[in-house]
Computed example of a mutant assay.
Amino acid sequence: MTSYRSWVDRLLDGFRGEPDAIVVRDASRSLDLEDAACARTDVVYAVALPGEAGTFGVLALRSRGSWVEADEVREHLRRLVEPAAAVGPVVVVDRLPVTEQGKPDRTIVFELLRP
């Protein structure tokens, strides 16, 4: 089993990791994955984490009253980032897991995104 810390530390080529952003770069542009997910009006917040074999996973918080599904968010991201990066697991939730400090709980997000 891969630990959360070692998994996050293994940022892959093509990703630039910062505490609050994963950015996909290709020859012509840079794209923040969380911003890309939130470009949909039915997603109000997103957490992106690097995944296995050049992929990334996204946990998306759907807006109140929205019925957006993971496949719709995944397809939206595919259109924006491929072939620069491969879309991995996408999970859509109604409630964001947060730490006691109110920040996204990346340990829980990691577990939710694990295949």
Rank of each mutant, 00 (worst) to 15 (best):
K103T: 14
C38S: 06
R106A: 06
R64A: 10
L80S: 07
T41A: 09
Q101R: 13
E52I: 01
K103V: 07
G88H: 03
R78C: 15
P83W: 01
S30W: 03
V47L: 02
L77W: 04
I108R: 14
Y45H: 09
A39I: 02
T55N: 02
R106G: 12
S66Y: 03
L96H: 08
Q101G: 12
V47H: 04
E82M: 03
F15A: 09
S6F: 02
V23T: 13
D35Q: 15
L11D: 14
G51H: 01
R95S: 12
D32V: 06
S63D: 06
G102H: 04
D9Q: 14
D71H: 11
V90H: 11
S28I: 07
V81P: 08
E82G: 00
H76G: 09
G54P: 06
Y45Q: 10
I22A: 06
H76S: 14
F15V: 10
M1E: 13
G88I: 01
H76E: 12
S28L: 08
V68T: 08
D32R: 11
T55F: 01
R16S: 13
E34N: 11
L77A: 09
A48K: 03
E75A: 14
D105G: 09
V92S: 05
G17K: 09
G54M: 04
V73Y: 01
G51Q: 01
V68M: 04
D42G: 02
F56A: 09
R10V: 04
I22D: 01
H76V: 10
V44P: 00
A39C: 07
R5N: 09
F56W: 13
V23K: 01
V68W: 05
L11A: 11
T55Q: 08
R10A: 15
G65A: 04
A85I: 05
W7K: 03
G57T: 07
E69C: 03
V8R: 12
F110K: 09
V73R: 02
E52D: 06
V47F: 04
L33M: 12
P115E: 00
L12Q: 13
G54Q: 03
D105P: 10
G65L: 04
A70E: 10
G88V: 02
S6R: 05
V81D: 05
V47E: 08
R64S: 08
R74W: 05
E82C: 01
T107N: 13
P115D: 02
P104L: 07
L59C: 15
E82N: 00
T2W: 12
Q101A: 11
S30T: 08
A36N: 08
V87D: 05
V92T: 07
A85S: 11
A37H: 11
R16G: 10
P83S: 07
A53L: 00
P115W: 00
R5A: 15
I108N: 12
P83F: 06
Y4G: 14
G17S: 12
L59V: 15
R10T: 11
L49D: 06
R5M: 13
